[in-house]
Amino acid sequence: MNVLNKKIPVAFAMALTLTAGLMLSACTDRNTETGSETSSKQETDGNLDTLAMEAVNQAQVKYKASEQAGYAWAKAGTMLASAQEALESGDFETAIHQARQATALADTSLAQAEAEQSAWLERFPKAPTGASP
């Protein structure tokens, strides 16, 4: 009776551990995959923390550039801030994910700045015809 009672939970626990182990290894695989997106060189020797740091740095550079252009987006700023927070708290996966989003947003705002260099000239009301002095 006792033996039976004990055996089932033990088998269950072992099965769970196995599943957990498999899921964990799947996680690690995914991490290396995300890493390879940034740079294939770092796939082998790159740690998640350096990848996260690089991603955050890149986002910071892009955001600064958009600020300098006068076209910073609030969303890029908040995304960068939470990426930095994640990096500091050691949540590297989140940091990488958010830093990439921040970079993409800053890139888009820089494209907007570029397009507006000339586009704005077309947006002002034209002087009424025949009314010019």
């Binding site: 939970p9 626990a13 769970l16 551990t17 599943t19 957990a20 899921m23």
Partner: peptide
Amino acid sequence: GLLLPCLLFI
């Protein structure tokens, strides 16, 4: 000791 972390994990 085994079960708790497993359950949490899942």
